[in-house]
């Protein structure tokens, strides 16, 4: 099954390889969610969404639907993030 950003649990990370087309795609890319970027899920809002992601040194909160449009592969590196 495909891994998407919304499938990352808190503390997990991955590398973006593709974004689904859609109205939000350009904005997400402008914020740094581009293929090849490393991303980590940091924490969630009380109801489970939105979630806060660490991307290129900044923390951006996304709703589940938008996070679900970003496809990932697992990050193989063992870098300590937090």
């Amino acid at each position: 099954m495909d891994l998407t950003l919304s499938g990352l649990a808190e503390g997990e990370r991955g590398i973006i390889y593709e974004l689904e087309g859609g109205s939000a795609r350009d904005r997400l890319m402008d914020l740094g969610f581009t293929p090849g970027a490393q991303v980590m899920c940091l924490f969630s809002a009380p109801s489970g969404e939105p979630r806060a992601y660490l991307i290129r040194g900044a923390v951006i909160a996304l709703r589940r639907r938008d996070a679900g449009s970003i496809r990932l592969r697992r990050d193989g590196e063992d870098r300590v993030w937090a």
């Binding site: 980590m40 940091l42 924490f43 969630s44 809002a45 009380p46 109801s47 806060a52 660490l54 040194g57 923390v59 870098r79 300590v80 993030w81 937090a82």
Partner: peptide, 23 residues
Amino acid sequence: GRGGYDAGQLRVDRLLTRRKTAL
């Protein structure tokens, strides 16, 4: 240096956004 997310800051963030403590 790439800089991650500060561990102390993450603890505070989680406290402020946890289901039981946020509201």
